[in-house]
Amino acid sequence: MKFYADRVPVALRQLLTDIFVVIWVYLWIRVALWIHDVVEQLAVPGQKLEGAGSGIADNLADAGGKVGRVPIVGDELTKPFNGAADAARSIAEAGRQQQEFVHQLALILPAIAVGVPLALVLFLWLPWRLGWIRRASVAATVRDDPAGQDLLALRALATQPLTRLAKLGPDIAQSWRAGDSDAVAALAELELKQLGLKRR
């Protein structure tokens, strides 16, 4: 497997790009974790609301139970306490719901924050990088074999810009078809240079 080019400028550019991508992904993961922590802080008011609502409901229910023991009018006196306790339980439930919403948001927002950069890496940079590794590995394997040089020359004829091919001579294709070793070597060198490789 060929991971980096033979030519120093190309290899340096590849190395710097790889380092940049790793740092970039790491920074986005750190940003996602920071977003998670910040959003989780929004659950604190819900926790306080739930605690306060539950405490008030318990106290009101306890007071209603004590008032209910009063003879004759006890049942009538407990109704306001029970109603207030139910209202306090509703407040506690609202606090629980707010916490659940915040916990869901603390998962969704970081996932979005890290998902987009990771998608760019996985669907743009990684296929490009793996494609180069695959092409360079094959080219490095066949570059010193005469038949491999012919394949590299054919690829150069098929993929290189016309301006580069024209610099090799106006009859470069005809020379390649005729099996001219100089033309084959020049075309193979052009393809290797495009990949950042050298002949051994």
Rank of each mutant, 00 (worst) to 15 (best):
L33W: 13
P127R: 10
A57P: 12
G55N: 14
Q160V: 11
V142E: 10
R129Y: 10
A92S: 09
R129D: 12
A156Y: 03
I91D: 05
T163S: 10
A87P: 00
D145I: 14
L49H: 05
W132E: 04
L157P: 01
P127F: 15
P161F: 06
P127T: 12
I72E: 00
S137H: 07
V184F: 00
L157W: 01
A183Q: 00
G64Q: 04
A43I: 01
A158Q: 13
V121D: 00
R13Q: 15
G51I: 06
K193I: 09
A5Q: 01
A156R: 03
R177L: 14
Q160T: 12
E50T: 05
I72V: 05
K2A: 06
L49R: 03
W125N: 07
L157C: 07
D37V: 09
V31T: 05
Q174S: 06
R135Y: 08
K79C: 08
D182V: 14
R199F: 11
A88L: 04
I112H: 02
V142I: 15
S54D: 08
L187D: 02
Q98C: 04
P110V: 01
A5Y: 00
S90H: 03
F20Q: 10
A106D: 07
R96D: 07
V44W: 08
Q99C: 10
L33Q: 15
Q194C: 08
